[in-house]
């Protein structure tokens, strides 16, 4: 698969647009999955995916194949998503947690994944962009601290600090919004 990527990258650099289109088709699903963590609005998510691939095309020469192509794309997508959050920060509006459905599904011990993601997303958006990013990647993508630091160009220690601070704040938010009581049935 990686040789296939490398061949397509070289062909794209040589001006073969079909080769880059193949790369987009190969990875757009994974990138869309990541961008969905940055915005649950399908139009915004689609825009972020598009921006990621356009940016990747424009800086394709700087890809040195030290890591798989997908890692490189995820780095670009993460930064695009973070930029989007930073822009949104100015007009920050939260989804009120009361509007979300915390009720237990019938005969099930687990919340529906979409609902769980919605609740988590609504809680995380109350944090600062950098703290939100760390926890979003940790919780949704199972990303270790080291990888988050690498993606963002932050230090490992700084990222760890952000994660600790974010967890503390999130705990406070959960207590304030009485999440424990609302999700009592999950315990």
């Amino acid at each position: 698969m990686e040789n296939l990527d490398w061949d397509d990258i070289q062909a794209s650099l040589g001006g073969d647009e079909a080769a880059f289109e193949r790369l987009v088709r190969r990875y757009q699903e994974q990138i869309a999955q990541l961008c969905w963590r940055f915005s649950r609005d399908s139009a915004v998510c689609e825009r972020l995916v598009q921006d990621t691939f356009v940016e990747a095309y424009m800086s394709l020469r700087s890809y040195k194949a030290k890591a798989p192509f997908l890692h490189w794309l995820k780095k670009i997508a993460t930064r695009a998503g973070y930029r989007f959050w930073k822009e949104q920060d100015k007009e920050k509006r939260f989804v009120p947690l009361e509007e979300l459905d915390f009720a237990a599904p019938d005969n099930e011990q687990e919340l529906e994944p979409g609902k769980a993601a919605e609740i988590l997303h609504a809680m995380l958006e109350r944090l600062d962009s950098s703290e939100r990013l760390v926890l979003t990647l940790m919780y949704f993508e199972d990303c270790p601290i080291k990888e988050i630091a690498e993606r963002m160009g932050w230090t490992g220690a700084g990222t760890k600090m952000r994660a600790m601070r974010a967890r503390r704040k999130l705990k406070k938010i959960a207590e304030k919004e009485k999440i424990l009581e609302k999700l009592e049935w999950m315990q």
Partner: peptide, 11 residues
């Protein structure tokens, strides 16, 4: 609870 929520959200 949040971590449990996250595990579900990943699916």
């Amino acid at each position: 609870i949040i971590e449990k929520l996250a595990k579900t959200a990943q699916k």
